[in-house]
Design a protein around this nucleic acid. Structure first.
Lengths: 343, 343
DNA sequence: TTGTAAGCGTTATCAA
DNA sequence: TTGATAACGCTTACAA
């Protein structure tokens, strides 16, 4: 059933039917109702490809997902698209996912826009100097960044979490417990969020006259095995830290595993704080309170990104930035430092 | 740059240029080369919406992802789409993801096909009596099931793993170690894979004259906290099992956590076997050998699904089934039963 | 308030 | 081997 057939059956022109269906003001209430009811009865649905071609719009949002290491998708992505997908569904958009090698990213964006494949994109995993911001702005493709870059905050839309501040806060907390040798198991620091976290971490240390120690800062992909390896490296070094900050719940899990293997008790022998993105398939740190954590749900970030992007596409609302607050919950994995703090 | 402009510049008709670009045989080698080179130089890309409209094809594969519990996406999905996405990319297809409530699934499929939004779909999470098989067959929409249903194997395409056999094998192994009270922490058993695993489990027990005990079989969503809760339930029951089989690495992790909390050592105090889908963000059980596991990479399943589906779409290859073999690796988490086996 | 007709950018049919 | 021309199914000036 297409528009032509439908309008023939109704004895109206395609134009009128189209207008009635799309809520144009000039069509009479009577015909609008008649058309709507008949379309419903005939189970008519417009062909999106034709619509897209005619309007030059795609009603689709693109996600370009770089695969790191040739074969891994960031597990946080699942929760992000759960949030975003819900919004797309509600607002009538499709989600198009391109899984590409990291070095094909820009090309993929350009193809998407040239081909009018999407009306906007979500930018994942922004780096400090991310070339994509300038390129997308130049192309005029609406986009929202999940995270931030070094570009001015008002030169693009973004949804981010208070990385610097929350890590400063967490570090301050550890310092207040008497810890002076504090380790950081971070994500890749060319990613802005990780760089910011390190900044907050170092700032807190310096404000307490503790010089950051390169040997206590490790930067890796945030997966469980890397958290484990990093903690092992710490423990096997001559002077292990008395507390460790992990940038992800996954690395925190790995770190805790390394402690267990050594029969060390978190919160007693060594303190651990993790950043918890509230991944839905993992235990929520809030429930049993076993882990002291900074928490901010990544699914929520997905929702906000989607809503901001669609607002921007449909209503030309300008650039918008949204800073989510990660909150610290004190659990059992942190405690007073055993080593006396150096004078 | 569109086809019209391109052909004007070339002094050829749109038809000829189109044919040259699409590799039709009747165009002369000389012009084909000239066209190809010029298109490349002009950076010409056909408009997919127009192509789709003209061909009635969408060059897109749909994934309908039901959200369980209103807000969770199965974490195994990430790895699946990593595999499938790679193939789509290589073969020129887009991946369209619809995140919908479970009860909207069929409607979503119907919309996708009616709107010619996709050329085929991947069916996730098949249940024993899955209405989708019949519906999709009736609609004539090509599809591949990740897993199987109770329908005849040759009535649809599928990629599955040897659930029944591998769980029988794992159970046999535990029996051979002297275990008689064996627990099963399974996924939802209306899902075929989980039902099959239970079958294999029970068959092995019965072949050794052990009557399956309902109190030792738990069926839940396969996430870490549920594995933990299930193991706790076992341990707090009057007679805990001496060995446990987990349907997922995530539930296995939760189960192991419960053991740690009780200072029990896997492989000594209680044996644990997990089914490892080789999720990329978790430690691979093969490496350190701490866990006895059945292994089969879910990313590989994603690749196969995508390839089979596209073959089916493009070359009308009929239904095809592919059974992957999960292999058991003996690790440290299994050992001889302590309780003497009842005579 | 409704209708006519011209796009949108391809592919496909038929003729040359 | 190439080229007109008609689909594909919709939206949108412009006209009535």
């Amino acid at each position: 059933m297409n528009l032509k057939e439908l309008s023939n059956l109704l004895g109206l022109s395609q134009t009128t039917v189209s207008r009635a269906l799309n809520g144009y003001p000039e069509v009479s209430e009577a015909t609008r109702k008649r058309v709507a009811e008949f379309a419903e009865k005939m189970n008519y649905q417009p062909n999106p490809n034709a619509q897209r071609l005619a309007m030059g719009k795609s009603l689709t949002i693109g996600h370009v997902v770089p695969v790191a290491d040739h074969d891994m998708i960031n597990p946080h992505f699942t929760d992000f698209i759960a949030g975003a997908g819900e919004v797309y569904n509600r607002r009538g958009y499709d989600m198009l996912i391109s899984v590409v090698n990291a070095d094909e990213q820009v090309k993929t964006y350009m193809d998407l826009v040239r081909n009018k494949r999407v009306d906007g994109v979500i930018v994942h995993g922004p780096t400090n100097d991310d070339e994509r911001i300038a390129i997308l702005n130049e192309m005029g493709l609406p986009f929202v960044v999940h995270g931030r870059t070094n570009d001015p905050d008002d030169s693009y839309s973004w949804v981010d979490v208070n990385n610097e501040e929350s890590f400063r806060e967490a570090t301050e907390y550890l310092l207040s417990l008497g810890h002076r040798r504090i380790g950081l198991i971070n994500g890749w620091e060319h990613m802005t969020f990780a760089a910011k976290r390190r900044s907050g971490f170092e700032a807190a240390l310096r404000s307490h006259n503790v010089e950051p120690d390169e040997n206590l800062m490790i930067s890796r992909e945030m997966i469980e095995p890397n958290g484990h390896a990093a903690m092992c490296q710490f423990m096997e070094s001559g002077r292990p830290p008395t507390a460790v900050l992990c940038s992800s719940i996954l690395t925190a899990m790995g770190a805790l595993r390394a402690l267990r293997e050594r029969d060390l008790t978190p919160g007693k022998d060594i303190s651990v704080i993790g950043f918890d993105d509230c991944l839905s398939f993992l235990p929520s740190t809030g429930e049993d309170g076993s882990l002291t954590a900074l928490r901010s749900g990544i699914r929520l970030a997905g929702k906000h990104c989607a809503d901001i992007l669609i607002d921007q596409i449909e209503n030309d609302t300008g650039n918008r930035g949204l800073l989510l607050q990660a909150e610290m919950t004190i659990g059992a994995s942190t405690g007073k430092a055993r080593e006396p703090a150096p004078a």
